[in-house]
Each structure stands twice: as C-alpha cells, then as structure tokens.
Design a protein around this nucleic acid. Sequence first.
DNA 1: GTAATGTGCAACCTATTCGTTGCATAATAG
DNA 2: CTATTATGCAACGAATAGGTTGCACATTAC
Lengths: 95, 95
Amino acid sequence: MSDPLGQVFGALADPSRRQVIGYLSARGTATATELTGELPMTRQAVAKHLATLADAGLVESERRGRETRFRLTDAGAEWDDRLDALRSHLTRHRR
Amino acid sequence: MSDPLGQVFGALADPSRRQVIGYLSARGTATATELTGELPMTRQAVAKHLATLADAGLVESERRGRETRFRLTDAGAEWDDRLDALRSHLTRHRR
DNA sequence: GTAATGTGCAACCTATTCGTTGCATAATAG
DNA sequence: CTATTATGCAACGAATAGGTTGCACATTAC
C-alpha cells in the first residue's frame, strides 16, 4: 500500500484487533484458534485480523508443526504501551 | 459510535486527513474551500474529511459570517506532534 | 492407515468509506 | 435588488472492510 502509517492506524482502528494486541501482550503468543475462544467471531475472521496486523508490522508469525503461533513485534509491543497511555489519557480528559 | 479510540485511529488512517491536520497545524485555521486548493478532490470531499476529524475530536469549527473556519483542537495538535515523531521513528527504522 | 486437529484459500454478503454530482440556502458585494 | 461566494445536504457509485460458510490440505494422534 506504501502508506505504512496509514496501515498502522487502520489496523488499530478496529476494537477486535486492539483486543488481539492486548491478548498477545498478556500471553506472549497465541494461535488464531486459541484467540477465537476470546472473540465473538469465527477462526477465519480472527485469522484475517491477524493478517491485517501482520501487514501493518504489529504482529509476526511462525509456523511450528501444524500450528501457526503469533506474537507482537517490537512495534506491536510499543503500540500496546501507547494504547494504555492513550486510554488513560482519554479517561483523564473525560468530561 | 462509543469507540473514541477507534474514531481517532480511523480518522488518522487516511492520508488526506493527515495532510489536513498538517495544513491546519501550519496555518492555524482554514475553511473547507481553502483546503480544497491543496488536495486533489472536491470541496464536498474535503468537508467530509473535516467532519470526520471533528467527530474524532481532532478539529473544531466556528461559523463566522458565510464561512466556517476550522482549527485543530488540543487533541489534534498533540496528534500532529505524535505524527511527526512516528514518521521519523519509521524512517529511522527503515531497512 | 485412519481419524482428528489446525490452517489456508476462495466465494459470497452486507455495511461502510471515499469520492462524485446536483441542488438549495445563507451571507456578502455591487 | 441581483449576482457572487461559501456552505450544507442528499443521492449515487465503486471499492474496501468485516464477517460468514464451505472445502481442501498438512500435521499429529491412535
């Protein structure tokens, strides 16, 4: 797409994807099938979200045997921190 | 929409809207008609982008006479700074 | 070898996004 | 008053997003 910043913001715009980032931050790694247990959607939908996050460079995957494990990249971990900061910033400025 | 963070990221995901933020940061205020000179699209398209930015709380408007002038909110100005930082962060990590 | 598990791919549907055009209205200029 | 300028609103169209189902394939368990 050649708009790296746009891809990152686009990826972060979806609440399900932000949840996925949160889960990956908490657990270290997970497979699409595992994450499906946490989200109200099919495995294929979760896989698409993971692909979007991977395209944005926030997540990376490694196939081990019959499963594909995902984890946050450094950029993804930085954004997980920024998200926490932004959320408390928002709550702080709620009126 | 009740997803303030999602609205902000969604607003920032579009390159034209990031440009609008840049222009407003440089000039202080502008009208939709003025901004149309800077972007390859119609005034109505620019007006929609401004409305999206306003919904996300990044921009605010005031009608004076027959024109409506837009300016960055505090949140919008903060994001303009963060965008600069993120861009140089990206270039620094280019390989 | 056969069954079970985890993935990946593709087609499809619906809603949203980003842009357009056309027109009606508000405010200023002459 | 009339013409011009700046907006706003609505309908429309093409493309993208977010989700679904169905199926084929790869890997492990028994």
